[in-house]
Design a protein around this nucleic acid. Structure first.
Length: 157
DNA sequence: GCCAACGTTGGC
DNA sequence: GCCAACGTTGGC
């Protein structure tokens, strides 16, 4: 089993929203690298760190799992959707997604600042300078380390 | 194939 | 709200 991190802006779709719906098609990803991770890397059952971005306290807030193989993102064909892509055709889809299933909320938010303070997370894709990838791989070691922080009092200022 | 202009992401 | 960093687009 592999591990991943997926970002979402909580004002658009939060961990509480995922808990409410249970399983959600991860639509709207319009970045080739992120698409390729979903299409070529993800398998059902893979672990997902759910990350809140572009908000007051960015950080990891929950655990989810990949709940499907990749399949074409239907919103690319929907003219009324903000994710509509006129270059996409049903027989030649450009964008893929997977379903994501809620597992649990973390006891506390593992803040971005706290992750940055971990020397052992050097090289973690999330922390690369200027990285804006919304779907990215997490090694087993990074996964274990990040989740171990959950039960520590509070990592940083 | 180069690269300037533009739009977007996302931390702060 | 600001702005740095990045990806994409399109003229040439």
């Amino acid at each position: 089993m592999r591990h991943w991190l997926m970002k979402s802006e909580p004002e658009a779709f939060s961990i509480d929203d995922l808990e409410r719906v249970g399983t959600e098609p991860w639509n709207g990803v319009r970045n080739y690298q992120a698409r390729n991770f979903m299409r070529d890397g993800m398998r059902p059952g893979d672990g997902v760190l759910f990350y809140h971005s572009n908000c007051a306290v960015p950080g990891v807030v929950g655990v989810a799992e990949v709940a499907s193989e990749a399949y074409p993102d239907p919103t690319q064909f929907e003219q009324a959707s903000p994710y509509f892509d006129p270059r996409a055709r049903p027989d030649a889809p450009r964008w893929m997604l997977v379903d994501v299933r809620f597992k649990r909320k973390l006891a506390r938010t593992i803040r971005l600042a706290e992750l940055r303070a971990q020397p052992r997370l050097e090289g973690f894709a999330l922390l690369q300078r200027g990285s804006r990838l919304s779907v990215l791989p997490v090694t087993r070691g990074q996964w274990d380390l990040i989740l171990a922080l959950e039960n520590q009092p509070r990592g940083l200022p």
